[in-house]
Write a protein that binds this DNA or RNA. Sequence first.
DNA 1: CTAAGTGCAAAATGTTTGCATACTT
DNA 2: AAGTATGCAAACATTTTGCACTTAG
Lengths: 142, 142
Amino acid sequence: MKGGSTYKTKQREKMLKYFEKHAGDHITAGDVCEYFEKQGEPIGQATVYRQLEKLVDEGLLNKYIMNAAGPACFEFVGMRVHKKDKMCFHCKCEKCGKLIHLHCEELKEIGKHLSEEHGFKLNPLRTVFYGICEECAREDED
Amino acid sequence: MKGGSTYKTKQREKMLKYFEKHAGDHITAGDVCEYFEKQGEPIGQATVYRQLEKLVDEGLLNKYIMNAAGPACFEFVGMRVHKKDKMCFHCKCEKCGKLIHLHCEELKEIGKHLSEEHGFKLNPLRTVFYGICEECAREDED
DNA sequence: CTAAGTGCAAAATGTTTGCATACTT
DNA sequence: AAGTATGCAAACATTTTGCACTTAG
């Protein structure tokens, strides 16, 4: 369904290591370029984007889109291991922009419900809940 | 908190009418420009973007971001009326790109849960569930 | 040797901004 | 009259593409 195999190149390995090391962080294509630039071993941006896409396809990274005119964020997921118990949801505050990671059993029910009732296989790793976080809600009492 | 008042201009009214008429549809800034272009009464794209932003701030439209390098979508919400029973969730298929509108009581529980347990006020109108739709899942049995 | 990946620079998108002019209130 | 909106064109930022070259298998 997807074309050909994946070569193990220096660039790919370096990027992967970088993401692995920063697991849990949200990293943009620009961040990646900048980082390796500073390391004195730059990776062409075209390569960065192409590898990023590939890694997302392979399920090693997740891609999150926050702002329309702003870079997409990528996050390390793990080596093809989709550990259910590590599964986490993301909440993005529309007010302060904060991104909250939620680990919650009950939320996993959503996935089951969507699947059973609506035939939709939720990808919790890519899904972002938008709303207002606790702190902002407090200031925002209208 | 936000600057100044809002004038009732031709452009704004036309845009609003257009969105209202196509309630439920997902419309891009480009769509808006194109539509009025064809009507023979074009609206400058800067104006379109500025009004779009404004309308979102005012809560008359919702903004959805699907692809990083793709236009944002806007959808009519209603005249400041947040009818709970009209509340709907969006599921976006990562495979075929289809966007599904879901009206579901159970899903509304998510909002309650997030609010009560995590202090997060979900905005279901802006939140998009990513995953694989029924049809694609069938072809995709791996 | 062949398929896949790289890097550069150029193009393509989508969105934002500066500024002079025009419209609303 | 004062404040806000408009429209154009230019500026931006992010992402994608074409092509010659290199590298992995």
